[in-house]
């Protein structure tokens, strides 16, 4: 058991380590211009200084916790994350009720679906000019763009989830005397959660993509802003450090959401059904 886990870990690390080594060798040997591709060691050093507090610890002005988190990287990450959370909350918060209505009512579906199908293929990025026109610069257009990115995956999956509820559950609930409202709350909603949650997972992924783009355009902090800013100074090591951070945060979010889904869906058969 443990041995096979170590083996899996070793196999998983083999290719990344080899790539890193090759990369380092290429840089140390001077095969590439360090301005174009800095060495992994340089990226790591830059990542560390990006992460570390900017000023020396001064107990008089701040607590040590605040000091630990005073680095630029942490501020940027928190700024990006808070935009993802806000944008996702707005997008999913609108998509969920609309999806539930569209899934349960055929007439609402018939009226609203054509518009949704028309808007859905427009990538969130295409809303950038309009969002700046409407909201100016700052957090508002960023949250708007992220909300659009999160909206459609949650909407489509919620509709599908509600429409795919096995009719036998509804028949069973009716024969137990459940009212329409009870059936909706206690049967349709939980039966649709696997779909809704997978929509939410896709939505968060999209939100995370959009936040980087939005930050490159509308705001002056956050990971997306920082890597674009680093380009202006030719800090390619900082660009790569920022990109790696984006990757790590994205991975962490996806793992957390998937853990949460597994907990919420512990009743679900999973692959079997």
């Amino acid at each position: 058991m443990n041995i096979s886990r170590f083996k899996a870990l070793g196999e998983g690390l083999l290719v990344p380590v080899a790539v890193l080594l090759l990369w380092q060798v290429a840089c140390s040997a001077g095969w590439v211009n360090p301005m174009v591709l800095p060495s992994p060691a340089a990226v790591a050093a830059r990542w560390w200084s990006y992460l570390a507090p900017l000023e020396a610890y001064d107990p008089a002005t701040e607590s040590w916790i605040a000091w630990i988190f005073s680095g630029e990287l942490i501020h940027d990450s928190l700024a990006s994350l808070s935009r993802v959370v806000m944008g996702f909350a707005v997008g999913a918060g609108l998509a969920l009720p609309l999806g539930l209505f569209m899934g349960t009512s055929d007439s609402i579906y018939r009226y609203v679906n054509p518009l949704m199908q028309l808007l859905r293929p427009i990538p969130p990025i295409a809303y950038i000019p309009l969002s700046i026109l409407w909201f100016g610069l700052g957090n508002a257009p960023a949250v708007f763009l992220i909300a659009i990115g999160a909206f459609f995956p949650v909407l489509m999956n919620t509709i599908a989830g509600v429409r795919h509820v096995d009719s036998i559950y509804i028949r069973a609930a009716r024969s137990l005397g459940a009212s329409r409202l009870t059936i909706f709350r206690r049967v349709i909603l939980p039966a649709a959660t696997p779909y809704i949650l997978s929509g939410a997972r896709i939505g968060i992924g999209t939100a995370f993509i959009v936040v980087i783009v939005a930050e490159m355009i509308a705001v002056n902090n956050g990971l997306g802003f920082r890597i674009l800013e680093a380009r202006e100074y030719f800090w390619s090591d900082k660009i790569i450090a920022g990109m790696l951070t984006i990757g790590l945060i994205g991975l962490a979010i996806d793992l957390a959401v998937s853990r949460l889904n597994n907990h919420l869906l512990r009743w679900h058969r999973g692959l079997e059904s």
């Binding site: 028949r171 069973a172 609930a173 039966a191 679900h268």
Partner: peptide, 29 residues
């Protein structure tokens, strides 16, 4: 209606409810 309890071949248990919750559901209604 609940005056005619129905048992289905496919069981039709609510998979998101535990055994006890399934049994309690009709009583809650």
């Amino acid at each position: 209606g609940p005056d005619r309890g129905m048992v289905f071949q496919e069981y039709a248990l609510f998979p998101w409810m535990t055994v006890a919750q399934n049994i309690a559901f009709g009583l809650e209604i």
